[in-house]
Amino acid sequence: MSILKIDGVSKRYANHTALNNVSFVIPTGCIFGLLGPNGAGKTSLIRIITQITGADTGEILFKGNRLKPDHIREMGYLPEERGLYKKMKVGEQLLYLAQLKGLTKADATERIKGWIDRLEIRDWVGKNIEDLSKGMQQKVQFIATVLHEPALIILDEPFSGFDPINANLIKDEILRLRERGASIIFSTHRMESVEELCDNIALINRAQKVLDGSVKEIKEAYKTDTFQVIGNGKLMILNPDFQVLEQHENHGVFRASIKLLNGTQPNDLLRYLIERVEVHSFIELVPSINDIFIRKVKETHHA
């Protein structure tokens, strides 16, 4: 079951193409990373999903139905450019935005109370937004995004502007929301920040999708069977099954990157090493999403 199915979506502006035939699926109940450098087309895609603009061609299915205006109340969108009415009080602002999403006044008031306590902003409810620190404003905006308990939450660069403590607070809230069944789209150009959170990702570059799938599978597919070994002793590898990519030695401590060839297993390498040196550390070198992205982008450019 997918919360969102994007099928062949294209969007052209006067003198550039923002999205070129992009398709992928976002499974229900997952945290989905929409990754790519600045200007890749992420925000354009989000604006099409949130129906701020329309696609030129292609189709988007929300819970299996063609996207229609009613779906808006099942989505929560935190734009990259944060904004609130500066001269409005925190409580009133939340109430207003919640009501625009279709909540009744009583309902909205009830939920606002809950969130205010959980994010520790009770003292700020009666203050104008302009009197709040930036991080505090971000919290308010986050609450506004999720207050109506949307099935799909779209967060554009959610952690920019947060200090580490508040970033963790928000991270926990996001995980809690997923547990309660919400699907979450993360859009960011800082790929390392979401690797640990995302279940699935799609990489977008220059208006085109270059890669999508579950993080686990992608990493599996892009792993290079390379291991980093640190230890004491003189390392001399003469076995044709093991290729040394890199090796340093310093005061009797060596550090080496070794690639397995011909279908050998990690344990084979370990066994080989134990007989010769003292092993302190043995780690698989898994490519980061960032590495994969760069590789993928290079491939598409050469192609």
Partner: peptide, 8 residues
């Protein structure tokens, strides 16, 4: 703020 409002 317009983007937030326009999405509702």
């Amino acid at each position: 703020i317009v983007e937030v409002i326009i999405s509702s």
